[in-house]
Measured scan of single mutants.
Amino acid sequence: GLEHMADEEKLPPGWEKRMSRSSGRVYYFNHITNASQWERPSG
């Protein structure tokens, strides 16, 4: 619920959580730099 939404908002600017269609794993994508990574971004 609300706790999940608050957790999402802690991601650094530009980052969003996405799911890989090929593997079904969650990864993180930065739409500003077009960077993507499996680890949760910090800072």
Rank of each mutant, 00 (worst) to 15 (best):
G1M: 12
G1N: 13
G1A: 13
G1H: 11
L2H: 14
L2T: 13
L2C: 15
E3I: 12
H4C: 15
H4I: 13
H4V: 13
M5D: 14
M5S: 12
M5G: 12
M5F: 11
M5W: 12
A6K: 10
A6R: 11
A6D: 13
D7I: 10
D7K: 07
E8A: 10
E8V: 09
E8H: 09
E8G: 09
E8I: 09
E9T: 08
E9I: 07
E9S: 08
K10H: 11
K10I: 13
K10T: 13
K10D: 14
L11I: 04
P12E: 02
P12D: 02
P12F: 01
P13Q: 06
P13V: 08
P13N: 08
P13A: 10
G14W: 05
G14L: 02
W15E: 00
W15N: 00
W15H: 00
W15D: 00
W15R: 01
W15S: 00
E16W: 04
E16S: 08
E16T: 08
E16R: 05
K17D: 01
K17V: 09
K17G: 02
K17H: 03
K17A: 10
R18V: 06
R18L: 06
R18F: 05
M19Y: 15
M19N: 06
M19T: 14
M19R: 14
M19C: 15
R21F: 11
R21D: 11
R21L: 15
S22P: 12
S22G: 11
S22Q: 10
S22E: 09
S23M: 07
S23Y: 07
S23A: 08
S23D: 10
S23T: 14
G24W: 03
R25F: 04
R25H: 05
R25P: 02
V26H: 07
V26W: 13
V26T: 09
Y27D: 00
Y27A: 00
Y27P: 00
Y27W: 05
Y27N: 00
Y27V: 02
Y28N: 00
Y28D: 00
Y28V: 00
Y28A: 00
F29A: 02
F29Y: 14
F29N: 00
F29W: 08
N30T: 00
N30M: 02
N30K: 00
H31Y: 14
H31N: 12
H31W: 15
H31G: 05
I32V: 09
I32M: 08
I32R: 09
T33S: 06
T33P: 01
T33M: 04
T33N: 05
T33A: 03
T33W: 05
N34Y: 09
N34L: 13
N34G: 15
N34V: 03
N34F: 10
N34M: 12
N34T: 06
A35V: 15
A35K: 15
A35F: 09
A35W: 10
S36P: 02
S36A: 13
S36N: 04
Q37Y: 03
Q37F: 03
Q37L: 04
W38Q: 03
W38D: 04
E39F: 07
E39V: 07
R40N: 06
R40Y: 08
R40D: 04
R40F: 10
R40I: 08
P41F: 02
P41K: 02
P41D: 01
P41G: 02
P41T: 01
P41N: 02
P41M: 01
S42Q: 13
S42T: 15
G43F: 15
G43T: 11
G43H: 10
G43V: 12
G43M: 14
